[in-house]
Design a protein around this nucleic acid. Structure first.
Lengths: 192, 192
DNA sequence: TCTCTAACTTACTTACTGGTAAGTATAGTG
DNA sequence: CACTATACTTACCAGTAAGTAAGTTAGAGA
């Protein structure tokens, strides 16, 4: 075999899906191996223990996010399309069977995470906040958005809202997401 | 024994704590029975299966919420203290070791919930939205709050924000919660 | 006093958890 | 051709999950 084996990739794919569907404690090695037609031990070969797998999933998350946001994450342009890009990304993740975000999936099992993973998660969040803060800042200075208070506080509140909205959408339906996005737009004084 | 046995209550107490700390799949019967000094089977005596326990926890949640919000949930009064009451309740829940809310705890394991529990959860959420909608409506008409859009949309967005904020606070610290509350106030045009 | 019932415990079962050690097939390398 | 590394499988392990059947104990009521 040596080459042309994509088992590792498939494991990550499947685990990623499961992680964002059921959380860290909500899936087992069996849930991954069975549909892939491999044995448990195959997963252990690629990821000696579950935390190694989670580490890989956080990296995967970074990549998915970067891919899904690359077009609108070009700093400096108009803020509105960047915000809309964020909304669209969140919506598409929900639609393709990833109802909760990685931060949410990890939050629930936060106590049994290794320090390394906590740090990676922390970095990811700080990165997201920093980006959206810049978008908010630019948006306000270019008169695209209107809001009071610090740009960072506004950014944090919007990210919290999206996180909560995804949870709500899970329990109810995707209309909740769209509705909350609309309210964010309204709050920012955006009129189409 | 017959009387004066409060094992059932203690089980609910412990399970409630665990549920809002780790989620449905994050605790076992052992986690409940061991600290209580009883056996696994004692839990099964009171709650034949885990779903029966969850059902009891949802009821408990209703009661805790009702107790914790009774003072400010008297409809018709000024809106501001009602909103502040909601913030204080969310904060106190976080502080007393219940970092995530029931809706969030159930959302992650939503697929393996019984229809009865889904309905109970649904009812709870609709109830919360209805209440906050009224608060928002009153607040706007009495010139306490300023916002655009439907009162219900605003209410849903605030509840989503609080839900997300609790998750963030878990991973980071309680400052996130306070900060987001502040931003909600600012967005509503509240100045102290 | 006898009986009934509530509230358990004891002792188990079945199924699944993450994890490991040892073996195997395959492909590339010297 | 022998050797080595990769990518697994087979066959296990100890621990834990929820759940159950049968026995035990204490008090309440007739």
């Amino acid at each position: 075999m040596t080459q042309a084996s994509n088992t590792r990739e498939q494991i990550i794919d499947k685990a990623f899906q499961l992680m964002l569907q059921r959380g860290l404690n909500g899936f087992s090695y069996r849930d991954i191996s069975e549909p892939l037609g491999v044995k448990n031990a195959a997963i252990h070969y690629h990821f000696p223990n579950k935390m190694d797998l989670v580490k890989a999933l956080i990296d995967e998350n970074h990549q998915v996010l970067r891919k899904g946001t690359a077009e609108f994450m070009a700093y400096g342009g108009p803020a509105r399309p960047q915000l809309e890009g964020l909304f669209a990304f969140a919506m598409s993740q929900c639609k393709c069977g990833r109802p909760i975000c990685m931060v949410g999936a990890l939050a629930i099992d936060y106590d049994d995470l290794s320090d390394e993973i906590k740090r990676a998660n922390d970095y990811f969040m700080k990165d997201s906040v920093a980006w959206l803060t810049k978008v908010m800042d630019i948006g306000r200075s270019q008169d695209e958005f209107h809001f009071e208070g610090e740009a960072e506080s506004k950014a944090v509140s919007i990210l919290a809202m999206i996180q909560g909205a995804r949870q709500m959408a899970r329990v109810h339906d995707l209309d909740y997401l769209e509705r909350i996005f609309d309210q964010i737009r309204t709050d920012l004084g955006i009129v189409d």
